[in-house]
Structures are given as structure tokens and as C-alpha cells.
């Protein structure tokens, strides 16, 4: 590709709300990095950034116009450009599920998809689930059943559970569904555990997560 000149807009150091709030050395170092470097992932890259791309994303019902390094994942767009830090970066490789959001109503790993690929689409994050002060039923159930300990995986668990419940209503089978021809499988413990296997919880709050989801699914808990 042609060598691109460094974009001063991308290289400028921004002082954000988080820079002021967070005092840890690592946090300061990270927020002081240009966005291009954050988009580049864990491996250092000293090359000039590629030309930025302008896209529109409807996030939690609100339209945002963003000018991004094309390497920016949906997760980094949310966390680093829109300050929506509820979606968490766990592994950044699609293995832990902490970054799960709903894109066009379907649950995906936001760390493994580029923001530019979703121009014009709707994204729902953990910040967009409550209706004012009223929590989403899945959020309420997680609170009632103590479906978390440290909380780091929780926003991913909740977004994933909402996507999973919708899939289940639409008749999506799972690997443990006995009869593939049944319209919809009952959300038993085994079904929920299989369907939620893309969300890892290091605190092992799994029994309570399963109980919370069963309650929302209307299954006896």
C-alpha cells in the first residue's frame, strides 16, 4: 500500500474523563497512547497509521459518527472512542466472552469484529439495557441470584444471556438438544450451560448465572 502520512488528529494525546479519574500508572499510560496504537492490539507497530474511515453506528439507540483507524474493533470503538466501558476486554481473542454485545440483535464477540464492518448497524451494549432506573429482567435476575462475584465477566454474561434467550425463542437448537426437529428446546441446566459456554467466569459463579437465566426463561429454579 501507499505510505500514508501520520494523521495529527489520530496522534494527538487526549485527556479524557478516565485520564483524570484513573490514577494507576498503567491506566495513564494507556489513555495517553494515540487511538491508533490501541487499535493495533498487543503487538507494537511503529508504522504510520492507515487512512481513517468515517462510519455511523447506532449504539443503544443513539446515532454516532466515528472517524476511526480501520483496525479498530467494535470493542475498542466502544471503550476508547465512546467511553462505553461496560463491555470488557478480557482475552481480546474471542475466547472469554467478556466483550459480548448485541449487533443487530445477535450476540457477538465485539473484540473479533471491526467497527468499519458494521457501518450503519445497531449495537446494544450493557449500558443500553435498562429503561431509565428500571433494570432489564436479566439484570434483575443476576442481582437476585447473585450471578457474579468480581463482576468482570458480568456485562458479557448478561448481553450473551439476552441473545441466547432470543435464539431459544426463535427455535435455535444446541449441541445437547436431543431432538433437532423440536421447535424449541426447554432451557434446562444442561441446555443453558451449553448455550452459554462462550462466556467464561473466573469466579465460577456458574450455578447462580444458570439460576438467573432459568428464572428469566420461566423455567422452575
Amino acid at each position: 500500500m501507499d505510505e500514508q502520512e501520520s494523521d495529527p488528529e489520530l496522534d494527538k494525546i487526549e485527556v479524557t474523563r478516565r485520564t483524570v479519574i484513573e490514577t494507576g500508572t498503567t491506566a495513564l499510560l494507556l489513555t495517553a497512547l494515540p487511538h491508533a496504537a490501541l487499535a493495533a492490539g498487543s503487538v507494537e507497530d511503529k508504522e504510520p497509521p492507515p487512512p481513517p474511515v468515517t462510519i455511523g453506528l447506532r449504539i443503544n439507540g443513539q446515532l454516532h459518527s466515528l472517524t476511526l483507524d480501520p483496525r479498530t474493533t467494535v470493542l475498542d470503538a466502544l471503550r476508547e472512542h465512546l467511553e462505553l466501558t461496560g463491555s470488557k476486554k478480557g482475552c481480546d481473542h474471542g475466547q472469554c466472552g467478556a466483550c459480548t454485545v448485541l449487533i443487530e440483535g445477535r450476540r457477538v464477540n465485539s473484540c473479533l469484529t471491526l467497527a468499519v464492518m458494521h457501518d450503519g448497524q445497531s449495537i446494544t451494549t450493557i449500558e443500553g439495557l435498562a429503561d431509565g432506573e428500571t433494570l432489564h429482567p436479566v439484570q434483575t435476575a443476576f442481582v437476585e441470584h447473585d450471578g457474579f462475584q468480581c463482576g468482570y465477566c458480568t456485562s458479557g454474561q448478561i448481553c450473551s444471556a439476552i441473545g441466547m434467550l432470543a435464539e431459544s425463542r426463535q427455535g435455535m437448537p444446541s449441541y445437547v438438544t436431543q431432538d433437532l426437529m423440536r421447535a424449541a428446546a426447554d432451557l434446562t441446566d444442561v441446555e443453558i450451560r451449553e448455550r452459554m459456554s462462550g462466556n467464561i467466569c473466573r469466579c465460577a459463579a456458574y450455578p447462580n448465572i444458570v439460576a438467573a437465566i432459568k428464572q428469566v426463561a420461566g423455567m422452575p429454579t
Binding site: G97, T100, R107, E167, P173
Partner: peptide, 19 residues
């Protein structure tokens, strides 16, 4: 093609299969 449906459902996670 139940074998194909089962094989797909055996792969990755629901989030990854959606993409």
C-alpha cells in the same frame, strides 16, 4: 442433514457461530 447441524453446533461458541 442432521450430521451437519450437529457438527456446526459442536464448533466454537454461540457468539462465534453468529459471525
Amino acid at each position: 442433514y442432521g450430521v451437519l447441524s450437529r457438527a456446526l453446533l459442536a464448533g466454537a461458541s454461540a457468539q462465534l457461530r453468529n459471525k
